[in-house]
């Protein structure tokens, strides 16, 4: 175990009966890093959080947080980490300020001790400090939960899907808050099913069905696994999607917002494909080379292509 790393995982495996939730997962998170765990439901993200926060023990492999072994030193780890689970887990019957005071007391600190750390977030919910937590809106609950996870100034912060079900604007604001915490030298492991949030992380791990698909910076992942991509748009997009799948040298074609993405091989001839589409009655289609994104890479890797 190396104290240089905020998190160090080696061959971590967890089974529930016959189902393998995590299968030999290994990666390291540097101190002060904002590290994203990106994958859909069922990828094993929550299982990994529960192992790292010492709520469960692994079946195989080792994990260390802040240089401490997750099995042998679980008590010390618990006092050093902050954990915001995916489900709202504060006390609905306590007020905003009572929840905060309660979590501070659990960790043997006073709210005032680390107030500077939570101040930018807590100020936004302070006008409602006497309101019961159960009566807060979704966005405010999330901010309170973050304050409660930070009140003892943890060295590593674990955030399990903090932006799931949150609208695009509030999601972006939440990532701004994480950038501020990172500036205060807190190491952060955050999970998300939204691939477009990858760019807000220093490094990411792509995970699916218990398997790690890739670990690197978002840019590094795209340059390592990116493919030749063309975008295709114009007219009846559904008919165009089906037509694109019949074009030669197209490996895969998926809808991607305003344009379809075609993953193509080296022999793909764009001019010939434009002619073929025109012959099939698709007028005014735009077929342009483009760069791979994280979602393109994820689809490629989850298909074992």
């Amino acid at each position: 175990m190396d104290a240089r790393y905020a998190i160090e995982i080696d061959g971590l495996t967890k089974r529930y009966g016959s189902m393998t939730a995590l299968d030999r997962v290994s990666f390291r998170v540097e101190r002060g890093e904002l590290f994203g765990l990106i994958g859909p439901d069922g990828a094993g993200k929550t299982t990994l959080f529960r192992l790292l926060t010492t709520l469960m023990n692994p079946d195989e492999g080792t994990a260390a947080v802040d240089g401490l072994d997750c099995v042998a030193s679980y008590r010390q780890i618990r006092s050093r980490v902050g954990y915001m689970p995916g489900r709202f887990s504060l006390y609905a019957d306590l007020s905003v300020e009572e929840n905060l005071a309660f979590f501070a007391a659990l960790f043997g600190v006073r709210v005032a001790d680390n107030y500077d750390l939570i101040a930018p977030i807590y100020r936004q919910i302070e006008p409602f400090r006497t309101r019961r937590a159960g009566k807060l809106s979704g966005g405010m609950k999330q901010k309170l939960a973050l304050c409660c996870a930070l009140i003892h100034r943890p060295s590593v912060l674990f955030l399990d899907e903090p932006t799931t079900g949150v609208d695009a604007v509030s999601r972006s604001e939440f990532w701004d808050m994480l950038a501020e915490l990172k500036a205060k030298e807190i190491s952060i492991l955050v999970s998300t099913p939204y691939m477009d949030e990858a760019d807000r992380c220093d490094r990411i791990a792509l995970i699916n069905e218990g398997h790690l698909l890739a670990v690197d910076s978002p840019r590094g992942i795209v340059s390592a696994y990116g493919e030749r991509i063309y975008t295709l748009s114009g007219g009846d997009m559904y008919a165009l999607l089906l037509a694109a799948r019949r074009l030669p040298h197209v490996r895969r074609c998926c809808p991607f917002g305003a344009a379809h993405h075609l993953s193509v091989d080296a022999d793909f001839d764009a001019a010939a494909c434009r002619r073929q589409l025109a012959d099939e009655g698709f007028a005014d289609v735009a077929l342009q080379p483009a760069e791979s994104g994280i979602e393109d890479v994820f689809i490629k890797l989850m298909n074992h292509e």
Partner: peptide, 29 residues
Amino acid sequence: GVDPLTRRQFWELIYETAAAGTTVFVTTH
């Protein structure tokens, strides 16, 4: 919370359904 490939397959199901005349009223983030 659905993976990117399934999300796209799901939308193809929506396209098909709408093309067959069922109106689809959908919210998304």
